[in-house]
């Protein structure tokens, strides 16, 4: 996420139009310079703290390297990648991760928009209360929310079997892949919908009220105003919300780690990387999984920015 944020400042400063516009204006040139001074240190630190581990992981992924047997370290080229890409477990984990990403982001977008509308419309003394209430789940740490959901559904501690109709009292949600994934997705949606609604609320605030008024005067129904005026004006913030959440959802780890530890075929890509690197201490193989995860995240960014033309600058109200 940080990597996508840093080029913004660079874009603004290096944009030929802005240079042209500012030619001859000392004030704007000084401002651009100040921009660099302010963003520069953060940019350098980010490159150091994110760039170094990435390069180290790339390098480690070319070795057969076990942390407890450093003497046996051996250069094996791209063999780790061959092992991973021919392993059904990798593809299963990738499919699970993609499924969780698509399902949770789609549901969160619809729910988040509804909640954003509520936060936007509600007035008076209710406003801060509603906004706080909606944001509470996002303030909960993911591990805590994962435990809460697990305890609610687990056979030993849970109460959901008594609440959900058509479910027997001995039903084990985490013994079956699809029910386990369902609980994981529910927990994820509950936890991060507020984040999406917050981003969408910012978008809603940018929709010009006079355009909506004009549409009202022209006789557009509420539904038409939503589809023809509000949503098109919010496209940028919707796409940014989608991108941020998709990147976040693709790296899902906590919920799976707490609830199933990857049992019942619920392995995800991040959990797979953790298992090789941290649990097995196979630094080489684990780094290769991490690099592949990084490539997937890059691909999502690339598709979003190039294919769906997400304009990060516009979402910040700079366009």
């Amino acid at each position: 996420m940080s990597a996508t944020a840093t080029p913004l400042g660079a874009d603004v400063a290096a944009d030929p139009r802005s240079t042209r516009r500012s030619r001859g204006s000392d004030k704007s040139r000084a401002e651009a310079k100040l921009g660099w001074y302010l963003a520069g240190p953060a940019f350098v630190i980010l490159v150091l703290v994110t760039g170094y581990p990435i390069v180290q992981a790339l390098y480690d992924s070319l070795f057969s390297y076990r942390l407890t047997a450093p003497a046996d370290r051996e250069f094996i080229g791209l063999r780790n990648y061959g092992v991973i890409l021919t392993d059904t477990l990798w593809w299963e984990a990738l499919a699970n991760t993609a499924l969780i990403t698509v399902v949770t982001v789609a549901v969160e977008l619809v729910l988040g928009f509804a909640l954003a509308m509520v936060m936007h419309k509600v007035l008076g003394w209710l406003r801060p209360i509603v906004r706080t209430a909606i944001l509470v789940p996002y303030a909960v740490i993911t591990v805590v929310s994962a435990y809460a959901w697990q305890y609610a559904f687990a056979l030993t501690t849970g109460f959901m079997n008594a609440v959900v109709p058509g479910v027997g009292e001995d039903f084990d949600w985490f013994a079956n892949k699809w029910t386990a994934l369902l609980v994981i997705c529910l927990s994820e949606i509950w936890k991060t919908t507020p984040f999406i609604s917050l981003l969408l609320l910012a978008g809603l605030a940018q929709v010009p009220s006079d355009t909506i008024e004009a549409a009202k005067v022209d006789g557009a129904t509420a539904w038409e105003r939503l589809w023809r005026v509000t949503l098109p004006n919010m496209k940028a913030s919707i796409m940014v919300a989608l991108l941020f959440r998709a990147l976040d959802a693709f790296r899902i780890f906590d919920n799976v780690y707490i609830m199933t530890q990857g049992a019942a075929g619920t392995q995800t890509v991040s959990a797979l990387a953790y298992n090789q690197t941290i649990s097995r201490l196979e630094i080489g193989l684990g780094s290769a999984v991490s690099v592949l995860l990084f490539v997937c995240v890059l691909a999502i960014c690339f598709i979003a920015i190039k294919v769906f033309k997400v304009d990060l600058a516009r979402a910040r109200g700079e366009g």
């Binding site: 687990a154 056979l155 001995d170 013994a175 019942a264």
Partner: peptide, 11 residues
């Protein structure tokens, strides 16, 4: 017994 697939020693 019920829930054998997620049962550890404590359970």
């Amino acid at each position: 017994g019920p829930g054998v697939d997620n049962r550890d020693e404590a359970a």
